[in-house]
Simulated scan of single mutants.
Amino acid sequence: MATWRDRRIIDLFGIDAPIILAPMAGPGTPELAIAVGEAGGLASLPCALLSVEQAREALTLIRSKTHAPVNLNFFCHTPPEADAARNLRWRARLAGYYVEHGIDPELTPAGAVRRPFDSDFCEVVEAFKPEVVSFHFGLPEKALFDRVKATGAKIIASATTVAEARWLEAHGCDAIIAMGLEAGGHRGTFLNHEMATQVGTFALVPQVADAVSVPVIAAGGIADARGIVAALALGASAVQIGTAYLFCPEARVPEVHRVALRESSDDSTAVTNVFTGRPARGIMNRVMREVGPLSEAAPAFPLASAALAPLKAKAEEAGKGDFTSLWSGQAARLAREMPAGEFTRVLIAETLARLS
Score class of each variant (00 low, 15 high):
residue 336 R to P: 00
residue 352 L to C: 07
residue 265 S to Q: 14
residue 141 E to D: 14
residue 161 T to I: 02
residue 146 D to L: 12
residue 75 F to G: 08
residue 230 A to Y: 11
residue 159 A to C: 10
residue 4 W to G: 03
residue 259 V to R: 15
residue 18 P to S: 07
residue 261 L to Y: 11
residue 344 T to E: 07
residue 314 K to Y: 08
residue 90 W to F: 11
residue 319 G to L: 05
residue 81 E to A: 15
residue 77 H to S: 03
residue 114 R to N: 11
residue 80 P to S: 00
residue 300 A to E: 13
residue 95 A to S: 14
residue 9 I to P: 00
residue 274 V to H: 05
residue 240 Q to D: 07
residue 11 D to G: 03
residue 268 S to G: 07
residue 260 A to P: 00
residue 135 F to P: 01
residue 46 P to G: 04
residue 70 V to P: 01
residue 342 E to G: 13
residue 335 A to Q: 08
residue 234 L to R: 07
residue 208 V to W: 03
residue 80 P to T: 02
residue 246 L to C: 11
residue 101 H to P: 00
residue 196 A to R: 12
residue 10 I to N: 08
residue 341 G to N: 08
residue 23 P to I: 04
residue 44 S to I: 06
residue 132 V to N: 07
residue 256 V to F: 04
residue 284 M to F: 04
residue 337 E to T: 13
residue 246 L to N: 14
residue 180 G to S: 12
residue 65 K to V: 02
residue 184 G to W: 13
residue 28 G to N: 10
residue 298 A to R: 09
residue 105 P to H: 09
residue 350 E to T: 10
residue 143 A to D: 15
residue 133 V to I: 08
residue 266 D to W: 15
residue 23 P to V: 01
residue 127 A to L: 12
residue 106 E to Q: 15
residue 346 V to Y: 04
residue 254 P to K: 09
residue 350 E to L: 04
residue 28 G to F: 06
residue 85 A to H: 13
residue 73 N to M: 09
residue 331 A to W: 12
residue 290 E to A: 01
residue 31 E to A: 14
residue 60 T to V: 00
residue 138 G to L: 06
residue 285 N to A: 09
residue 151 T to C: 05
residue 158 S to Q: 10
residue 299 P to A: 04
residue 29 T to E: 09
residue 232 L to A: 02
residue 76 C to D: 06
residue 241 I to A: 07
residue 53 E to V: 08
residue 200 G to A: 15
residue 271 V to R: 13
residue 53 E to T: 11
residue 221 G to L: 12
residue 61 L to N: 06
residue 87 N to R: 14
residue 167 W to G: 02
residue 294 L to E: 14
residue 193 H to C: 10
residue 273 N to E: 05
residue 285 N to P: 07
residue 234 L to D: 10
residue 21 L to A: 07
residue 33 A to Y: 00
residue 188 G to I: 06
residue 179 M to F: 01
residue 91 R to L: 02
residue 50 L to D: 10
residue 41 G to N: 09
residue 309 A to V: 02
residue 126 E to D: 00
residue 243 T to L: 10
residue 150 A to E: 13
residue 336 R to S: 13
residue 286 R to E: 12
residue 256 V to G: 01
residue 207 Q to N: 12
residue 142 K to F: 11
residue 146 D to C: 07
residue 90 W to Y: 10
residue 127 A to Q: 15
residue 2 A to V: 09
residue 154 K to C: 00
residue 230 A to E: 11
residue 257 H to G: 00
residue 193 H to D: 13
residue 26 G to L: 02
residue 108 T to Q: 15
residue 241 I to S: 04
residue 148 V to Y: 06
residue 67 H to A: 15
residue 321 G to Y: 04
residue 145 F to K: 03
residue 241 I to C: 06
residue 260 A to G: 07
residue 68 A to W: 06
residue 331 A to T: 03
residue 139 L to K: 01
residue 287 V to Q: 01
residue 272 T to R: 08
residue 42 L to A: 01
residue 130 P to E: 03
residue 250 E to W: 03
residue 83 D to H: 02
residue 216 V to F: 04
residue 20 I to S: 02
residue 31 E to D: 15
residue 335 A to E: 14
residue 289 R to D: 03
